[in-house]
């Protein structure tokens, strides 16, 4: 659409310059994490530290327990993603592929859920997790985070399954496969694009999740996720700026690297959500 060469160069210059500004906070964060605390305060706009203070990382990782926070976040995120995929694919399959009495009612309910005023559910949710005795394990935050109806994902799965040709099922039925076998062996593998979209969207949400883990783990340091641990670190050591930057880098960099390696899938996955 844009034809002249100079316009093209202009666009590249604009995209590049703006792009640098765009990700500069992260660059700043990484280099700040390698400064001494004093250098952090006095080096002004200078980006590169004089000596790279790698021990900031070992301190954050071990002393400030970011290792614990990190693995908690990994377990929390992966479990939540798996639970959500299982729940919404099963629901989506039943709604999209099988005829059964009461289907319409359930469909209407699913859509209606999107529009119910939710109230502030974190307080009762918190009480509930305690009442179930899950408050002392990471299971508590996993259950709380993956609970609820994932309407968007359910609808994605339902419309995907509804639109698959009938012949697939019939062939499997002739071979004597039951509903469960058809679902796990035939349908779920076919729905990989939807599984991927669900996984990626839920991964991004859960990894960044703050309120649920905050309320559920604020009194239990051993269960905290990175976001909560980071917030607590800043509150406890208000003047350890380079430690703060190191902790933030530990928290953000792994996901950024995963994203950069797999960026095509991330972006296509997210695009998949809105397309449907």
């Amino acid at each position: 659409m844009i034809t002249t060469k100079s316009a093209r160069v202009m666009i590249h210059v604009f995209l590049l310059l703006f792009g640098i500004v765009w990700i500069y906070p992260f660059v700043w964060m990484v280099f700040s994490s390698l400064k001494t605390n004093k250098e952090f305060l006095t080096s002004g706009t200078k980006l590169i530290p004089e000596d790279f203070q790698w021990q900031n990382y070992s301190e954050a990782w071990i002393t400030a327990n970011f290792s614990g926070y990190f693995w908690n976040t990994v377990i929390f995120t992966v479990s939540t993603v798996i639970i959500v995929i299982v729940l919404s694919s099963l629901t989506g399959y039943a709604l999209g592929r099988i005829d059964f009495p009461g289907k319409k009612t359930i469909m209407i309910c699913v859509v209606a859920i999107m529009f119910i005023p939710k109230g502030y559910t974190i307080i009762p949710l918190f009480k509930l997790v305690n009442a179930m005795g899950l408050d002392n394990s990471i299971l508590g935050i996993i259950v709380a985070e993956s609970s609820g109806a994932h309407v968007l994902f359910i609808l994605m799965f339902a419309s995907f399954f509804a639109n698959l040709p009938k012949s697939i099922e019939e062939a499997a039925e002739i071979d004597g496969a039951g509903v469960l076998t058809i679902f796990t062996k035939v349908m779920l593998p076919l729905s990989m694009p939807i599984v991927a979209t669900t996984a990626i969207m839920q991964f991004i949400w859960t990894w960044s999740s703050f309120l649920v883990p905050l309320v559920l783990t604020i009194s239990k340091p051993e269960l905290r996720t990175l976001a909560v641990g980071m917030e607590n670190f800043v509150q406890t050591y208000a003047v350890d700026f380079s430690g703060m930057a190191a902790g933030a880098t530990i928290s953000l960099l792994p996901v950024m690297i995963i994203f950069i390696i797999m960026q095509r899938y991330f972006i296509e996955g997210v695009a998949g959500a809105v397309k449907s």
Partner: peptide
């Protein structure tokens, strides 16, 4: 470019808030 402009999406908002506060 797409990757660069998408990057903030995958970061944890609570931690971004702390970094931005410092900047």
């Amino acid at each position: 470019y797409r990757a660069i402009y998408f990057l903030p999406v995958v970061t944890t908002t609570a931690i971004v808030g702390i970094i931005i506060g410092s900047i």
